[in-house]
Each structure stands twice: as structure tokens, then as C-alpha cells.
Design a protein around this nucleic acid. Structure first.
Lengths: 243, 243
DNA sequence: CGCCCTATTGAGAGGTTTCAAAATAAGTGG
DNA sequence: CCACTTATTTTGAAACCTCTCAATAGGGCG
């Protein structure tokens, strides 16, 4: 019935049909306002593994909404040689807000695997936020959520023992996966051990060693980039600062 | 001349007369829009050293603009005993945005010394942002600036050697002081050594030891809570990851 | 199938933490 | 204003953890 008159919208139902909208920019937005947000999406873009979404120093052009895959953001250290992993980004998350303060990106973001993003031009988004309080609110909440994530990361790095940091990292991944309706105890680690080490302020060998140890103790089942949590309670215990 | 007709505004020129407005919420806002922002300030509040602005779990009621003094935000760890310093807050900075995502505060903020803040009710601020794009923009930038600070903090904690972390911390304080028109090389440390240690993921003894060492090497002049940077170049050198 | 990159595992050196004690500052009440 | 108590800071020595260097094993991609 409705198909008869519908102007055959050219598959621009991106957000309506996207399972991530609950997490993404349009969270808690429905109806016409959602249509408006959909129209902000300039294009979708696919990135191959290793490809950069933008690099440190690039001018702020767009904000990106992760549709699938995973990303890693890094900063190059002044001395040139070393770089450090600042964050990982999964479906439903916004990327690029690091440039809002200074109009240019402060880190480099690369795909860890074949990934897909929705591209939202910043100028358009800003205009939209100025007119639609709902968009403005969501944008602010997205930044604040990201900020809260950074605080959790700081908390994790402040948890001294390496085992404790790794446990917190795995728990965080587990939470984020279940947010996306994925198994909370069958973790997909799209990043390398080196990335994990850099993210946690540890050597990659330490990460590898601790993974093996947790496997040997029956707490994890480590199969390359797939890690299954066998004993959640034990893992939670390791997140405490002491033992 | 102008005093003749002026309606003797009852000292509500808070922002106009505040030297921090360039850093604070009203940054780059002038004229009538600035008046509007001024009117958002419900009251000013003075806190004694150690007094809490809010505690973890409190409902989001207001955002606070630091006028003078210094603050420390901490999270209590689940196990109860330990807590961790997440951030320090100085004049011109916004406090309280951590609660925007979830409507309740995720950390506890306490004054490190007698301090003064402007109190802006969140509901009022939100309304104002919905109507005034300038306010909206500033609010977003403030969060993003704070987010950028968190990323720098992560970068600092990822810089493995303790000496390197401490150097980066001192440099950061120096930058923030010069932003506030204070001497860049005469640092005021309102927080304890333990706070610094917690902030950097180090033991307080390590912080103390390294301070002494830098003093002995003639790079710093450490006088209790006042630290003078004698050899800026040497300190910068220590910020590199290697030596 | 073979190369290359990543991950794992081992052993030693080094830096930080811990525990403990002394020295210094800060806050309190007379 | 001083003496007292309390808290913070500094310094020391030993133990521990993590890093580094090095070699091996395992997957992934052409």
C-alpha cells in the first residue's frame, strides 16, 4: 500500500535501517528529525585495513560515524620514531571530534580492518545543530561520552599492575561489544598485541605473556585475535588494584 | 559622562570584568551575547581547601567555571580503599561536563585550596545553547578542549619512564599557567606529591625522588609547592621518550 | 608453497614500588 | 605567639615487576 505513492526514496533510509542508530548520533531521535539527520550524511566510505581516515594536522572537514569494522587513533611523538595508540573506535561511535577545538585533527585515525563509515560534513552538522536542538544535544552527548571513555582509559592506565590494566581493557571491550549486541564473552580483537601494549602503556611482550598466563590459568581462551572469557568472575577480580 | 545615565547595573558585570573570559565559556563572545552569558551565572561560590564541589554519583545540577584557586577530580576505585586523580582544574576551565552523558557525575571534584567558582545551572545553560548558537559553539568547544586535555594526559601516562612523565606534567602546567598570563617558569603546585603521583601513575616517593634529582641537576629549583624551571631546554629534552 | 609479519617464549638488566624511618612543613590549641 | 601534634615530604635499601634484547614459532598473503 504505502509503496504505491512513496516517491521511491533512493535508499536514503540509512539511519532508519541501521542497527546502530541507538548508539550513534541519532540516538533517541525519531521521525522527521531522524530524516534530517540522515540527510546530513554526505556519503558512505569504505576503508581497507591500514587506510587512514585522516592524519594529524589535517583540517577538520567531516565527522565520521563508524558503521562497521574498527579504527585506531594514534599520535606520533615529537621525536619522530615512536607513536602511541590513544583510542579504538567501534561501530556506532563518532570519529573526528578531536578537531573541533582547534579546527585541525590532533591524531591520526586508521582502519584496523576493512571498515565502513558515514561521512558527515562538519559545516553541515554545525548548521544543523544550530537549528535543531535535538542534534545539538546528541552532538554534545557524543563528545561527553567520548570524554568519559578517555577518563576510563586514564583510570585504566593508572591501575599500576600490568595484569590489572589488561583485565580492565578486556572488560571494556566486552562492555562495548555487548553495547553493540554482540557476545560479551567472545571478544574480537582487531588490533595487534603491539597496539594493545601501546594503548595500555605496556610492552607488547608483556601483553602477550599475560594473555598466555590467563589462558594457562583457565580464565581466558586465547585464539589469536579471538579471546573468549571463560571465568568472568576471576577476570573481574584481577581488575582490582591489589592481587 | 557615561556614568550619568548608566542604570547602575548592580555589579553584574562578572564576565566583562573577569580577566579569564578569553579562556572561559564566553571566549570570543562580546557585546549583548556576553550579557546573556553573564546572566546565566546563578551565583558565585567560595570553597575552602578540601571542600567538594560535587561527588561521584551526584545528579547533574550545574556547571562550574573556575574563577580562582585549583581543583582536583578523582574517582574512587570499586574496591573502596584507593582513589585516583583524573584531572586538575585551573581558572578559566569548566567543571562538571563529565555528567552530561549520563546526567550524574562520574567523579568527585574537590578544591585544593581556597577557590572561587561561577555556578551556571545546567538547565539554563542548555536552554541558552538551544537558542544562541554562540553559546552552543562555546560549550562544544569547551568539552572538546577538555577532551583534548584528556588525550594529552593519556599520552603522558603512556610515556613510560617516570622522569619523562614528570617532565611532561611540568611542561603542561607551565603551558596552562602561561595561558592564564602567569609566569611560565615559576610553577605553583597546589596539589600534593601524592596527587601528582596518582595523576601520573607513579608512587609519591618516585615523584619526590625525581624532583630532588632534577633540583640536584640544576634543571629545577624546588621550593616545596613552588617549582622554578631553571633549564627549560633540558626539561624539554627529558620529555622525549628515550634518554 | 614460501616469504614476511606478528605473536610467543626465554633470560638478564634496569627502573619503580614497597616498606621503613627521618626530616620538614602545616595546623591546633593553649 | 609559641609549643605541640599531625600530616606531608624526603631519603634509604631491598624486592619485584616490567622492559629490553634475542630467538623461535605461528599465520596471513601473494
Amino acid at each position: 500500500m504505502p509503496s504505491a505513492h512513496a516517491p521511491a526514496a533512493p535508499s536514503r533510509r540509512l539511519c532508519h535501517e541501521c542497527g546502530l542508530s541507538r548508539l550513534c548520533l541519532p540516538a533517541s531521535i525519531e521521525g522527521e528529525a531522524l530524516d534530517r539527520i540522515e540527510r546530513l550524511i554526505e556519503q558512505q566510505r569504505t576503508l581497507e585495513s591500514g587506510q587512514a581516515l585522516f592524519r594529524c594536522g589535517d583540517a577538520l572537514r567531516s565527522i565520521y560515524l563508524v558503521r562497521s569494522g574498527a579504527f585506531r587513533s594514534t599520535v606520533e611523538h615529537e621525536d619522530g620514531g615512536s607513536s602511541q595508540v590513544l583510542d579504538f573506535h567501534f561501530p556506532g561511535e563518532l570519529i573526528g571530534l578531536d578537531a573541533v577545538a582547534g579546527q585541525q585533527h590532533t591524531c591520526t585515525v586508521e582502519a584496523l580492518q576493512r571498515s565502513r563509515v558515514c561521512v558527515v560534513p562538519w559545516s553541515t552538522l554545525q548548521d544543523s545543530a544550530a537549528h535543531l536542538p535535538a542534534v545539538q544535544k546528541q552532538l554534545l552527548r557524543a563528545v561527553c561520552r567520548s570524554h568519559a571513555g578517555a577518563y576510563r582509559h586514564i583510570e585504566t592506565m593508572g591501575a599500576r599492575p600490568a595484569l590489572c590494566r589488561l583485565s580492565l581493557f578486556l572488560r571494556e571491550l566486552s562492555f562495548r561489544q555487548s553495547d553493540r549486541q554482540q557476545h560479551a564473552d567472545l571478544l574480537q580483537l582487531p588490533m595487534s598485541r603491539q597496539d594493545v601494549g601501546s594503548y595500555l602503556g605496556l610492552a607488547e611482550e608483556t601483553v602477550s605473556r599475560l594473555m598466555s598466563r590467563l589462558h594457562a590459568e583457565g580464565i581466558l581462551d586465547v585464539r589469536h585475535k579471538v579471546v573468549e572469557i571463560i571465568d568472568q568472575a576471576a577476570l573481574d577480580g584481577l581488575c582490582e588494584r591489589d592481587p
